[in-house]
Amino acid sequence: MTADTPFIKLDRVSLTYQSRDSSTHALDETDMTISTGEFIAVVGPSGCGKSSLLKLVSGLHPATSGNVVVAGQKVTGPLKISGMAFQNATLLPWRTTLDNVLLPLQIVEPHASRFRKHRDQYEAMAMELLKLVGLDGFETKYPWELSGGMQQRSSLCRALIHEPQMLLLDEPFGALDAFTREELWGVLQKLWMTRKPTVILVTHDLREAVYLSDTVYVMSARPGRIISKTNVALPRPRTLRDTFKPEFIEMAQNLRLQISEGMGV
């Protein structure tokens, strides 16, 4: 697959959640094209269907109408080529950091059936990732012995251990303090530049979106639609210093205005 063929393509995708006495129109006729290895961010007001987008792409929830195509195939169920991380690190408290990172390998094939025999090899893979996020030396610690930022680093490692082609992040740094959050931007950027997965990052933080992504999509209030697409042409690797530059600030401010317009203000 070349960089030109889209890795993820949404074609007039709508999503309506039906419950017994109400229906919520979460996404409306959304089109999106994401190339292989691209890092995109989706921003928008609360409840605009950003998280629904991730459920559609991962195959956890079917679209009500329209087509979702990932890696050349129409999505009809869980893809097994995606890694996910959320605001809540959801690590298992009875497993050490290392064992938490290894969890996906015990589930996804072909690793699951080879896991017992090749455990050493898989542990080496996990250690390499932990080192990349600065957690070497903490692999025998339990999640409850780690700080919030460290838990989130472990969660990112768990999302990447099976070398997924696609990384889906739902406000992964939303619960962290500002300093830790900005530190983890650097960590995530490094992970992405090393592994080059296609990333969809859902966030409320516009500076985060600009810092990390190649393209920022702005969604309108519910029902969610894509109302703008901004290319972030800043050179990589980006640093915290870059976030104080005028072009960075201007981009974040523009996004902010677009969100207000999308809310009908």
Partner: peptide, 12 residues
């Protein structure tokens, strides 16, 4: 946690 179920289900 539903998020954890999502992580695992997305892996098949």
């Amino acid at each position: 946690e539903p998020e954890l179920q999502d992580v695992l289900r997305s892996l098949g």
